[in-house]
Design a protein around this nucleic acid. Structure first.
Lengths: 68, 68
DNA sequence: CTCGACTGGGGTAATTTGGGGG
DNA sequence: CCTGTCCAAATTACCCCAGTCG
């Protein structure tokens, strides 16, 4: 076939996440700074969020715990 | 943007719902706490209400029955 | 390299939250 | 039983600008 991207997760822009939560993009950035959201930084410093992460948060799932 | 937003439901702020019902945002919060309204919480604790849900209630639809 | 649109950072006003009492 | 208002604290929204994205 063609481009088969393996270990790449669908990333969303701040505007995307902001729309899904009905908040301002700046607010999403605030969540990332607060550590409430996993943010991947581009080479320019911009943030990109994982779709799975956002959807999980929207579903009402608190924080991901890997055992305790 | 280029990315397409997945399944996202239009959400309304407490002020929006309050205006639509001609009540105070505090009252809308009570409905959410009473389970009369589906509320999605932001990562900051604020509530967001589904537009479809609110519109259905405004349309005169009572509560969701689970078989009758 | 240039272009339009979006993003990041800081600061301030508005909104929302929670509980108590009318 | 249901609703509107009080208080203080927390969170969110919008303003500016320059840099980055595609």
């Amino acid at each position: 076939m063609a481009t088969r991207i393996p270990e790449s997760e669908a990333l969303l822009t701040p505007a995307e996440v902001a729309t899904m939560f009905r908040v301002d993009p700046k607010t999403v950035t605030r969540w990332a700074k607060a550590g409430k959201l996993s943010a991947i930084r581009t080479l320019g410093g911009h943030r990109r969020y994982r779709e799975s992460e956002v959807r999980a948060l929207l579903a009402g799932i608190p924080h991901q715990r890997t055992g305790d």
